[in-house]
Structure formats: C-alpha cells, structure tokens
Nucleic acid binder design. Structure first.
Lengths: 158, 158
DNA sequence: GTATAAATGTTTAGGCTTGAAATAAATAAC
DNA sequence: GTTATTTATTTCAAGCCTAAACATTTATAC
C-alpha cells in the first residue's frame, strides 16, 4: 500500500490541477486550429496526419501494433484510419514474412509526396501558433513538461 | 499581409514543434489515464465530467452555448452529452425566461453529490500523475504555457 | 507433441466530435 | 411593421475512439 497523495495532505495538488487544466486548454486550442487548417488546406484530418507522420519517419513500414503503440491509440482505431488512408492510395498494406498474424503498413510514393506538403505547412502553423514563445522558452517548457511522464511510457522513442 | 514565420526563416520553429509534440503527448497520456479511472471508478467519461465540472462552478446553470464556448467543443456535441447526463438525472434543462430559443442547464442535487465525489478523486489522480513536479515547478510551467494563447480566447474566464 | 498462454489484428457496439443544414426565435434595418 | 440578419439550438452524416469479444497465429510449458 503506497501512501497516496490526496488533495488534503499535498499542498502541490492545486498547482498540479492548474497545470493540467492549462495543458488541456493549450492542447485543445492548437488541435482545433490544426484540424481546421488540415481540413481546409488538404482535406485531411489530424489522425490521418499522425499516422502518415509516423510512417514517414519509418520508411520501411510499421506493423499495426507498432503504430497504435506509437500514437497511443487503440488497435481497432488504427485499423479504421489505415483503411481510409488506403482508399486514397496514401499507404499500402503488406504481409510480414515471418509472422502470418502481422501486417506491415507503409506510405506509397503518392503518400510521401502528399505528406511532405502537409508536414511543411504543419510546422509553419505550429510555429505561428506558438509564436509567443522564443526558442529558449520553448526548450525549457518542453523539458519541464517531460518530467510529467515518469510512469507508463510504452513506446519511448525520442 | 502579415509576414508569416515559415520554418526556413524562423530558427525557433523546430523548438516550437518539439514543444507542441510534448504537449500532445502529455495530454494524451493523462487523458487516457483519467478516462480509464473515471470509467472504472464512476462509470462515467471525461466529456461528462467536463460538463458537470462547468455546471458545478455555475450553480445557477448555463446556457448550452455558454457550455460549448467554455468547453471549446461544438454546439451539437454538447447537446448529446447533456442528453445522456439527463438520462441519469445528473442535470436538468429549463427554459430561459426572456429568450424562448435558449435552454438553461444545471446540476440536480444528485448531480452535485455525484460530481463532488468524482472531483475529489480526480484532483488526487491529477496530483499523482503530475507527482514529478513540485508546486513551484508546476506554477512556472503553467505560466509559460499560458503565453501560447495569444490568439483566439473566446471564453476567457480565469 | 499437446495444451496453455500470449500476441496480432479485426469487428462491433456505444459514445464522442465535427461541420453543415435545418428550425425557430430575437434583433436590426428600413 | 416588414424584411433581413443574427443568435440559439438540434439534427444528421461521417469520422474518430475505446473496450470487449473474436479469430488466427505464434510462443511457452510440460
């Protein structure tokens, strides 16, 4: 029985709650803005962009389970997004030689070209939305936030 | 035509992107954990909790449009969540005297009692999940993140 | 080898979320 | 006062997302 840090005994509790609400708000604002721009400029969605981004960084392809771990979403969710991306010929599925259960997914040439356009715009939008913070402040904030994740890092890549 | 800060010309772009990815990751991890605990402990969801939280802080009730602005979600979304909360008698809808278009929503006694239990547990969970940061660090990080939102604050409450 | 467990993916039911269209009521223009 | 615009809300289709159940294949125990 590990002693639990309940609100009453822990004076940092309120500040932690405030920080969480701020993270939540920041996330929602930026996600809403990025979602709208992805829709208007490229006719795509944030989940689709996330999947393509992961695949772009792994040109040899990824298994479905790797994708879901990396993106922190459920297995079934990835199935649906990949299905829809495949309908647009942005990616393809192929068998994994040694394992007949698994499926490897990777971007097509069309998908690569399309994603590079999207990623370029995306980086500009993020920079614009975070224009209130200079490089050094961003770096510090990133480091501070990284301390949150002391538990449960299923797919620690960077 | 305001000059746009594109990646090439702005050296802070990469750091901003890194910060955004960190915010995204932190948000996903904490949301996933809170969602699971709300489901297991209280049989509820994060959106329901958010709606009840907003109503708890506004005992006299809120109009649907106020709710959707406050929570930064669409109007139609609030309709659905409120409908389901009403099925459980956690809240009720009532007419707004001067305006026959509008609807005011507020917690029932049952909803208040239930939310207080949930909120207490919720604060403990958040504090536990952010236990890697002490009060002062939390405060500083909150202030830094607050600088992100220089644009588009539709419902600036705190 | 055979039984058991674990891993990979899909399917399904239900809820969340959006943007767009529709309805109704209040406000503004004139 | 009538018309046009804006505001408040709901409905709808489509996509996102999860947890649970399922099927298949692989790995482990013995």
């Amino acid at each position: 029985m590990k002693p639990q840090s309940t609100p009453a005994q822990d004076p940092a509790s309120k500040e932690r709650l405030r920080l969480w609400l701020r993270v939540l708000k920041t996330n929602r604002l930026i996600e809403a803005e990025l979602r709208e721009r992805l829709r208007l400029e490229f006719g795509t969605t944030l989940p689709r962009f996330d999947v393509m981004s992961a695949l772009y960084r792994n040109p040899k392809g990824m298994k479905m389970s790797e994708l879901s771990r990396m993106l922190m979403v459920s297995n079934g969710n990835v199935t649906g997004i990949v299905d829809r991306l495949r309908e647009d010929s942005h990616l393809l599925r192929e068998a994994v030689p040694g394992d007949r259960r698994a499926v490897r997914v990777r971007l097509t040439a069309k998908g690569i070209i399309e994603f590079e356009k999207q990623a370029s715009a995306h980086e500009g939008w993020v920079s614009e939305l975070l224009s209130g913070l200079d490089a050094e402040t961003c770096h510090m904030t990133t480091e501070l936030l990284a301390q949150v994740l002391t538990l449960k890092e299923p797919y620690n890549e960077n």
